[in-house]
């Protein structure tokens, strides 16, 4: 289980192109794993490495220190495509703890929230503003639901309320779902008698 997410202060990395799909975040050939661990090396693999495995020195994700750049500022429609949960696993293992975009794919949002990676949707104006000052640290305050930076006006953001609480508490949702087992059984009984 991931650590609780309450506040995060970090610098951002910008990948501005639109429609970064999950095949870019982690190419399919890395999906034959049977564990969740160690996928950070595969994150954006083909953007970071040559065919012979050597690093592309110009790739931004090879130039930064992932422990100092925990917020990914991504272009519109981020993480579209496949439902692979390997995408948030890889991003988390690489070092990211939050993704900010103007639009984030549904399945990825749901997957990320279950893995301690906070997806945040902001307006284009806020996005542009964040992108214009890449070196200034940004604070994401999940308790207050706002993004703060320097003296700028805090920017509110929304996260689905239940997922937010789970992130704040560092607990997962399966336990809560299991607490509904009596209702689930009752539902099954009612349907079986109808048939």
């Amino acid at each position: 289980m991931s650590e609780p997410f309450i506040t995060l202060t970090s610098r951002t990395v910008t990948l501005s192109q639109a429609n970064i799909d999950t095949d870019q975040i982690i190419p399919a050939r890395f999906l034959t794993t049977t564990t969740r661990e160690g996928l950070g090396k595969a994150a954006f693999h083909d953007w970071r490495y040559e065919a012979d495995g050597s690093e592309k020195p110009e790739a931004i994700l090879n130039r930064i220190d992932p422990t100092q750049h925990r917020i990914l500022l991504a272009g519109r429609n981020f993480a579209c495509g496949s439902s692979r949960e390997h995408a948030p696993w890889a991003l988390y293992d690489y070092g990211f703890r939050a993704v900010i975009s103007t639009e984030i794919a549904d399945i990825f949002t749901s997957n990320a929230l279950k893995n301690g990676l906070l997806p945040i949707v902001v307006s284009q104006a806020v996005w542009d503003d964040l992108a214009s000052q890449p070196d200034q640290p940004v604070t994401i305050d999940l308790q207050a639901n706002e993004i703060r930076r320097g003296n700028a006006q805090p920017v509110p953001f929304g996260v689905e309320s239940f997922a937010r609480q789970c992130l704040l508490d560092g607990v997962d949702t399966l336990g809560w779902l299991q607490s509904n087992l009596p209702e689930i059984e009752a539902y099954e009984r009612s349907r079986e008698t109808v048939r």
């Binding site: 439902s83 692979r84 949960e85 399945i107 749901s110 997957n111 279950k114 997962d172 949702t173 399966l174």
Partner: peptide, 8 residues
């Protein structure tokens, strides 16, 4: 769905 949800 994602893998966590497969588990659910």
């Amino acid at each position: 769905i994602g893998t966590s949800e497969v588990g659910h």
